[in-house]
């Protein structure tokens, strides 16, 4: 992994310079510069700069309340639903500022899907859960196309085998792990480019967690995945790069192997060796 793409201050370099310095250029999907977020009076994020490569897994780690989920929710503008939340700075997806007033947040969210901490299937059938997004965005012109999208999404979420014979049953009747994979299928169904995962396994048992992790690995082929996790083992297992957040600041970002074996910052080392957090 090219070292030039680790964290920088905004003054130090621009995305163009970063690409030029790279031996084997990677496609950058998400770029954040000087991102500050505050909830009313309380500032939650300070000057976050990060580049996220396409078709890879980026893990955000850090102690509770460090701002990693807040940053994740900036990338699909989910923070817009919180009235007191203010975001400044620049976040680009494919080089376009997503906080530009020209940007339609509905289209943005169709490109940047999200999976939540607690599985939140709609109280509808399994089929309707997956078909929700494609219907919303008019992605299928007839029933057969919709069926195909639903099946494909469920297959990609490795849930098809378990539910193909009971698509009409409520999604809420599945087990926790199945529900979470259903939510992943629901997100995949609108063919996003990026999938944000906010601690997707924290409500699941170890076996269900292992299945989701396997699935994340397979999804890298087509999607850029950004995952927030409390579990450092999980970050080590699934991600190519890891970013460590602490007290609202991005402390260190780099190849996962390096972050866990040879962190540059003292605080990162303290966190991964379990001295705090």
């Amino acid at each position: 992994m090219p070292e030039a793409l680790s964290i920088r201050t905004a003054a130090e370099s621009s995305p163009a310079a970063a690409t030029a310095a790279t031996a084997a250029p990677r496609e950058i999907k998400v770029t954040a510069r000087d991102v500050n977020v505050s909830y009313g009076e309380k500032q939650a994020l300070f000057d976050v700069d990060v580049d996220i490569a396409a078709r890879s897994v980026m893990a955000f780690i850090g102690p509770s309340g460090c701002g990693k989920s807040t940053f994740l929710r900036c990338i699909n503008r989910m923070n817009d639903t919180i009235p007191i939340c203010r975001v400044t700075g620049r976040i680009e997806v494919d080089g376009r500022d997503i906080y530009d007033p020209e940007i339609d947040v509905v289209q943005l969210r169709a490109r940047v899907g999200m999976v939540f901490q607690k599985p939140n299937p709609f109280p509808k059938s399994i089929y309707e859960n997956v078909a929700y997004g494609p219907r919303l965005h008019g992605m299928a012109t007839n029933k057969a196309e919709l069926d195909a999208i639903v099946e494909e999404s469920l297959r990609r979420a490795s849930l098809w085998k378990e539910v193909s014979d009971r698509l009409e049953q409520p999604g809420t009747g599945l087990s926790g792990g199945q529900q979470q994979r259903l939510c992943i299928a629901r997100a995949i169904a609108v063919s996003p480019e990026i999938i944000l995962m906010d601690e997707p396994c924290s409500a699941l048992d170890p076996i269900a967690t292992a299945r989701i992790e396997e699935l994340i690995d397979e999804l890298t082929e087509n999607f850029t995945i950004i995952i927030v996790t409390h579990s450092m083992q999980q970050a080590a297992r699934v991600s190519q790069r890891t970013a460590f957040f602490h007290l609202g600041r991005l402390i260190e970002e780099g190849p996962t192997e390096q972050i866990f074996s040879n962190p540059k910052d003292r605080r990162t080392q303290d966190y991964i060796t379990g001295r705090f957090g």
Partner: peptide, 9 residues
């Protein structure tokens, strides 16, 4: 549930 719907656009 609302968050889930918003996140799908």
């Amino acid at each position: 549930l609302r968050d889930g719907a918003y996140a799908l656009g």
